[in-house]
Design a protein around this nucleic acid. Structure first.
Length: 841
DNA sequence: GCAAGGTC
């Protein structure tokens, strides 16, 4: 009995094409999980019984075992070291059982899977199902083909090779890495944010090494747009009437960013009023015909010119391919193999009325060899394989097919050539010009008319000729931010960065469309390199240069470390989410202008309370548990942020100014104590709600700093007593370290610090402007200047309030070593002087 | 409820 040969394709339509080609249409077909086509023929010189069937893409996909499927019971971190299992992608289809049954009694297996890495991996899935890998006497062959045409199929049949294990292993590696990284991050961040915000769709907040960088491209452009600062500009355009033409001239300066200067030029030109032709030049230019068409370029044209999204475009292309109208539509190459049969392909299009004339002209006059292009080593560029009409294909598929044909004919056509004429003019020392185009050779633009150079004819000019200006126009405009990424630009970026494959790019774009951006904790996770890194690692496996398990282990270890860091930093992401998703709830009021973008920031009252600058996408924490308001409209001299006044709760709660930026990023080194920091904590990093208010700021001249507002040493601790600037009329000093309070003369109009110091105790001299009616001054005057400790009048009016500890520690304050380094600013040089205390208290 | 890669 003749030996039986089982052949397996990647999808049913290809199995049908292969069987038809090899049997000359003389086969019998029966249904199964997928159709099986049977016929007799010869195999390797012997007569054989053929069975051709197919899988439906991958037979298996990887997942975690059942024990890891519970989201709450499994720590996502454990997923990195979890085992993975392969199970059937589509259990209901019973593909594995089908293959196993069909393989029974077959001595040869021919693998007709698509010729890419994934196809190679599916080869091994098929071998596993059929039990072909290990059995003696059973032979496995790989058919390599790049279009489903009879010619290519027969050629592949006569050049059978072996499947490539390393390429398959590279795909195994990718599957494991993508699964572990994607699922762990997705589960963690989804669980963390689940139900946290009313208007955040938190059912799934996914992360993936392809989808996230894709989203990142869009977000990056979004940020460029919202931070764009438009600038006004002006352009001068003189007009002339010349030999029946009205011409608008372009300024050699193009545009100016100063309206006065533009006006000055306009006046100069108007006064003169006569243009002189100073140069006439002609240049031959050419526009190149396209290189061969690859998938990405097809998707771009489909999106920008045909209005088909990538998803639809690929479906249409896929159908055209399986029906034999075009070659394999997934290719990176734009270069044709040297053996490519251009003449044959042209002849195949010859009978099509759509471009019959054009094709016949190319065949008769001789076609141009296509541009060299890029040979990615995969499949030839996408080309038409046979003629079709709109009736055969339907509207959309026809449009795409039509483009493939036009592009192909374009690649074999001459470049387009045109003459560029430039006339240059001078007036009042300024230069202007106009440009005309005269097409001399249409070339490929006859078949791709949308790429044609537009004709613009100019009247005759003579050098030295003088022409009167009919009017001058001043065009005013604004510089424009870049546009949002077009789908076509996004595809280019993905292609350039190796994100997704030609088949999966459309899927990723679809996936991110409805998801919200997350500001990354670890930018690496959103950057395009993440995919190239994985690709580069698994390519080592594909080429047999590295061991599969070692590569997987190495990559997983790196991602596991990133994951741990991500978990630690998740609160930063939360802060941004809160700002984004509940800005209008209870307390999203605008407060304080950002010093960087000069736009109002938003105050988020829920703890930890903070400011959020929507433009800069920055969070600024503020002190917790108190009230916050704008401090007049004062700004920080260091960073231009608007200052705030924070008031601690209760009648004795101190109030103090702070700069949102300095509070979070203290501008001076050596700030050991931060306001709001845990007393025991050894950290000096500003954290949520802890930071440097103005009362800790050592700025030497800012009127709000510790240096300016500090009055004297605190009797209770190492801190400095500073003037509470908003405590009128109950003026007071408060300690910048403890809760010590000192009440100053009540009812004063104004109390402020001066730049002078008490010669006796080095305290800051204060200036008091008493109320006219209640002034204690004997002469009835209101202004008094003195030291709060040494001036008898002031001293008598001062009341210290510090609860129990004041009486308990009474008298002990004197002579204590206070005044930590710089604690009183200017007083530090005498910090051990016993007079620098509240003697007499 | 998760990834990305096939194909339906």
């Amino acid at each position: 009995m003749a030996p039986k040969v089982l052949m397996v394709a990647e999808k049913p339509s290809i199995a049908l094409s292969i069987a038809s080609a090899l049997s000359g249409g003389q086969m019998s077909s029966r249904r199964g999980s997928t159709e099986v086509h049977e016929f007799d023929g010869t195999f390797l010189g012997f007569s054989a019984q053929y069975k051709v069937t197919s899988v439906i893409g991958h037979v298996f996909s990887v997942d975690f075992p059942a024990a890891y499927q519970n989201w709450t019971a499994t720590d996502p971190l454990d997923l990195f070291d979890a085992p993975i299992v392969k199970s059937e992608s589509n259990p209901k289809a019973h593909i594995c059982r089908h293959l196993s049954q069909e393989a029974r009694g077959c001595g040869h297996l021919v693998l007709w899977l698509d010729c890419d890495r994934e196809g190679e991996n599916i080869c091994f899935e098929v071998m596993e199902c059929t039990g072909f890998h290990a059995k003696d006497g059973k032979r496995v062959y790989r058919a390599r083909f790049s279009s489903v045409t009879e010619k290519d199929i027969l050629k592949a049949m006569n050049n059978l090779v072996e499947p490539n294990k390393n390429e398959a292993l590279a795909v195994d590696a990718r599957q494991e890495i993508d699964l572990k990284v994607g699922v762990s991050f997705t589960r963690f961040q989804t669980s963390y944010f689940n139900g946290k915000y009313g208007n955040l769709d938190s059912r799934v907040i996914s992360y993936g090494p392809c989808q996230t960088p894709t989203l990142g491209f869009c977000v990056q452009r979004h940020l460029q747009i919202i931070t764009f600062k438009p600038e006004k500009f002006w352009k001068l355009h003189p007009y002339i009437l010349h030999r029946g033409y009205e011409l608008k001239l372009e300024w050699n300066r193009n545009r100016l960013f100063d309206s006065d200067v533009t006006e000055m030029f306009r006046n100069l030109i108007k006064e003169d009023g006569i243009l002189k032709v100073i140069a006439i030049s002609e240049k031959q230019e050419s526009k190149s015909r396209p290189a061969g068409l690859n998938t990405v370029n097809l998707l771009k044209v489909a999106s920008s010119a045909l209005g088909f999204g990538p998803q639809l475009a690929m479906q249409l292309a896929e159908r055209l391919y399986t029906q034999g109208f075009i070659s394999y539509p997934r290719t990176e190459s734009t270069a044709y193999p040297s053996s490519f049969d251009f003449r044959g392909t042209l002849r195949a299009l010859d009978n099509n009325p759509e471009w019959q004339e054009y094709v016949q002209k190319l065949l008769a006059d001789g076609y141009v060899k296509p541009r060299s292009g890029n040979d990615a080593g995969d499949h030839p560029p996408i080309t038409p394989m046979r003629s079709a009409t709109q009736e055969m294909l339907g509207h959309d598929a026809w449009k795409l097919y039509q483009y493939v044909c036009q592009h192909f004919l374009g690649t074999l056509s001459p470049d387009s050539k045109y003459t560029r004429v430039k006339i240059e003019f001078a007036v009042a020392g300024e230069l202007f010009h106009c440009i005309g185009h005269r097409v001399t050779v249409k070339g490929f633009t006859s078949i791709m008319p949308w790429l044609a150079v537009s004709e613009k004819s100019l009247p005759q000019f003579a050098e030295g000729e003088k022409i009167e200006i009919s009017r001058i126009e001043v065009d005013e405009g604004n510089t424009q931010p870049p546009d949002y990424l077009t789908e076509s630009e996004l595809i280019s970026l993905m292609e350039k960065n190796g994100i997704g494959t030609d088949a999966s790019i459309p899927v990723h774009i679809n996936n991110i469309c409805e998801r919200n951006y997350v500001q990354c904790i670890d930018p690496d996770l959103c950057l395009p390199d993440i995919r190239s890194f994985i690709e580069q690692q698994i390519t080592l496996v594909a080429k047999g240069q590295a061991d599969h398990s070692l590569v997987v282990e190495h990559v997983i270890k790196q991602f596991k470390r990133k994951f741990s860091y991500f978990v630690k930093q998740i609160e930063n992401m939360d802060a941004l989410f809160e700002a984004e998703f509940s800005p209008l709830s209870d307390s999203g009021r605008l407060l304080s202008k950002c010093g960087k973008c000069l736009r109002y920031m938003r105050y988020i009252s829920t703890q930890p309370s903070r400011l959020y600058c929507g433009t800069c996408e920055e969070i600024y924490y503020i002190p917790q548990k108190g009230t916050i308001k704008l401090y007049k409209e004062l700004t920080c001299p260091l960073d231009n942020f608007e200052l705030l006044i924070f008031s601690m709760p209760g009648p004795e709660g101190k109030s103090f100014p702070l700069c949102p930026y300095c509070y979070n990023s203290p501008p001076f080194e050596g700030i050991e104590t931060l306001f709001g920091a845990a007393k025991t904590g050894s950290t000096v990093e500003p954290g949520k709600g802890a930071g440097m208010p103005c009362f800790l700021c050592p700025h030497p001249t800012c009127q709000h700093s510790m240096i300016s507002q500090g009055v004297c040493a605190c009797p209770e601790c190492n801190g400095t007593l500073e003037l509470d600037p908003v405590s009128a009329p109950k003026w007071r000093l408060y300690c910048n370290m403890c809760n010590c309070l000192v009440f100053l003369p009540e009812g004063a109009h104004r109390i402020s610090t001066t730049r002078d110091h008490c010669p006796e105790c080095d305290s800051t001299i204060i200036e008091v402007d008493f109320n006219k009616k209640t002034t204690p001054l004997k002469d009835g005057g209101t202004l008094h200047v003195g030291c709060v400790l040494c001036d008898e009048l002031l001293h008598s009016l001062v009341v210290m309030k510090h609860g129990k500890s004041f009486s308990r520690h009474r008298g002990r304050g004197r002579g204590r070593g206070r005044g930590r380094r710089g604690g009183r600013g200017r007083g530090s040089r005498k910090q051990e002087d016993p007079k620098m205390s509240f003697h007499g208290f």
